[in-house]
Design a protein around this nucleic acid. Sequence first.
DNA 1: GTGGAACACCTTTTT
DNA 2: GGTGTTCCAC
Length: 773
Amino acid sequence: MSKVRVVLDYSVLNKPQRAAVEHHDGPLVIFAGAGSGKTLAITYRIAHLVQACGVPARRILAVTFTNKAAKEMRERLDRLLPYGAPDLWVGTFHATCAKLLRRFSEACGVRKGFVIYDELDQRALIARIARDLDADEKVYPPKRLAWMINRAKQEGISCEEFVAKKGEPMIARVYTEYEQRLAQAGALDFDDLIYRLVAALRTNPTLRHDLQQCWDHVLVDEFQDTNAVQFQLVRDICQGHRNLCVVGDDDQSIYRWRGADYRNILDFQRHFSDAKLIKLEQNYRSTKRIISVANALVGRNIERQKKRLWTDNEEGQSVTLYCCADGRDEALRFVNLVLEALAQGSKRSEVALLYRTHAQSRVFEEALRAANLPYRVVGGIRFYDRAEVKDLLAYLRVLQNPDDDVSLLRIINTPTRGIGKTTIDRLLEAAARAGQSVWNTLGQAESDPAHGAAAQKKLAGFLELIAGLQQKAAALAKPAALIESVLEQTEYVELLRAENTAEADAKLENIRELVGSVREFERTTEPPTLESFLETVTLQTDQDRMQEQDAVALMTVHAAKGLEFPTVMVAGLEEGLFPHIRNSGGLEERDDKAIEEERRLAYVAFTRAKRQLFLSHARQRYLYGDELSCVPSRFLDEIPSDELKIVKSAYLSAPRSNGYHGEGGEEDFAYRRVSSTGGRDRLAHGYGSGRAQPRQRPSASPGGTPTGIGDSYVDRSESSEGSGGMRPGAHVSHPKFGVGQVKEILAGDPPRVLVKFSGGPVKTVITSFLKPA
DNA sequence: GTGGAACACCTTTTT
DNA sequence: GGTGTTCCAC
């Protein structure tokens, strides 16, 4: 870290990387395959520009898609350059644009202290507008409306243009009203951050000129994920010098549904005909076999840049496909795989499970928990989306900008203070009539005869609360102290404490974490204003908060992009799940494109693996409560059969044949021929000789209806005390109910115990859900 | 105005 | 199966 490197060591670069680094002026497009040392190349390129070419760091803008990538880039440059690059512009599209919008707020026509509405805020506002306009919920669900509006902004279509097009008039009305209310609330949504800047650039030559003068070099990472406005933005600001370097991989474009268009990178040379094109095709991450399987798959896609990923790495072991009876079987498979990897000396954090949808994680979590294997689920519900966290942030936002109606409405009766639906409806009506924010109407509401005396009093109380906090905000100027005042004055914490439930405890814990993150922010940011805190928080995702720990990682393929693990299992390779049903059915023209994106997604998943790649599919699976019969994914058929080692679950064929694997016996499952030599060999890894694996409880009905979670996963032969090692008096913790003490062991299958949880409730729980506390 | 029960929903989600 | 939303009884 402290090693100051005076001269850049170019010998670490391969030929194309070096060419990318040393390319000086003019447009450059780099196709960087998975694991091809892309980050190395771009950080070196920036370092080279600064050190060898004498470009001041502040004249370079590097744009990424995630905060994490931005942070990583900055850190690597700090190590590469003797004095680091503190004044280099590095940030996400959104953060960079937010910064520029504030700096040039007047020219852009936005309020300087604008708040940023996240997806949930946006949804809330749109839902209210749709209701106000009497839009039929069936025809115009808020989700669809939001999608249309966002799509327009991503395409760079103004509201006026949108309205002028002959589309559905209701959508146009909602859009217009939405824009008005955003303006009134002094709020911008995510897509506005980029769109508003682009729109201002279009109409304001001075601003255009100013921004074009800001930087001499612009770099954009993950360019395949840019949408139309983002491309327009970078094109605009580079117009003078044309020193635009874009990096990406069309094969890893997996955000089409968010408006991303990989043709931005594919057709880059059409927009910049003199652009130099460099391909990074050597993979330094994976074994030959993994690369071969990944290549076979993605090679099926039609619309892509011609390239072939290759590697000098070792051959490695075969990519293995597990054919499982059901989701639980699959989960057990994964547990065994983890145990095997650990036995071979891997760390837990070196194993990852990737799946298409979050819903798949549960079964795996249960299995891992039962096997006492620490794991972490990446993604899921965002921390900042939790109700209690959002409530508190809403208070802060109202203090910063009381016109923020969405936030104000969120907290006006949270915690409940007797301001009910009727009162709020009247307030909204008055606000709409006056064309003002709710806050402005609130001041007059005290004397508005429309409200009853009781309501007036309650509103006055709320007004007083906010006014008091506003004074505090002005006096304190620091967010941490302010959030504590909010907690105090609203009695938020006391009320939760009084609830005395595990859920409330979890909320309190989240609040503590939030307060902690405010403190952290104050320590690390200068100046730590409320405004910048709120902006940081809104533009942050959970992955930015993830800390390293030695645990097995579970995440969606989307979340895994950019990561790598020595051992990876990709689960649920079934038709309808992966490729997902929404992208695999129907007869429309777009289906090809949708399938190609699913295939890219699989490609991204496969290329996360460094040494071992396992795939799996289940024949049956519970989804949303009902049992589905599943067909193996078409992607499996697209992998040459000699590249896959197939392991069938013992559960699969046992009911119908006497062997462990019913070779070709069942046509619904014999989608791939298993060679006779391979079949037996493969069994060595199967259930039959699983010495290293936890013993499977012999089931009376293999593949049939399992009786519960506990019995399948708990190895009872090792728990001599019975009931999974639980004893009365033992202190235990439960993922949902928190910590408690075992009161009584209950007989039964699965084993259950009676636990008194701290805070009161006595519950019967399945033993395997408990961990010693 | 509040809270619980019934109901509808459900892909992925860089910001 | 889990969650967010709506509606109805108190």
